[in-house]
Amino acid sequence: MFEIRIHSRGGQGGVTAARLIALAAIRDGRYATAFPFYGAERRGAPVVSFVRIDDAPVKVYSQIQQPDLVFVMDMGVMDVVDVLHGLKEGGTVVTNSAHKHEFAGFRTFNIDLTGIALKEDLVVAGNPILDTAVIGALAKLGIITIESAKKAIAEMFTDERDIKTADDAFREMTV
């Protein structure tokens, strides 16, 4: 089982990103669940979402304690949340940033999701929407295939730019 924890702020698309990843994994012929942790959050508050991907039906409903991968969609969240909490040894951290951040003991990647979204003008209520770029980046890491990622986006959205940002993220992500 591969477990992903996504840190974002309300309104950025963290919950949708988790759902897109699960859908893409299912389109890859695997099993997946996606769920947010719901507190009393409002727009702008830190949000945590989870994805589990496995080759058998996922039966676990409790929160992910030891993720394989942590995706930080908003760097500011790191000031208030320990995003590395429970991350498996040798696990992966992906940050939404133009600059590389090193976290000792973990594989680290960075990608400028915000830049990609702004380039396509994917902005809703003043927030750049990052969900489709997230799954493009994860496809590059081989967690899901880019084909299924695009299928998932096409099933959930009608705006062509959504697929384009996934493609952009896939291309720009350096592994």
């Binding site: 699960a22 859908l23 997946a32 669940t33 996606a34 769920f35 719901y38 409903y61």
Partner: peptide, 9 residues
């Protein structure tokens, strides 16, 4: 939430 808001196949 555990089921109402979880996305599954």
């Amino acid at each position: 939430f555990l089921l109402s808001h979880v996305m599954q196949p």
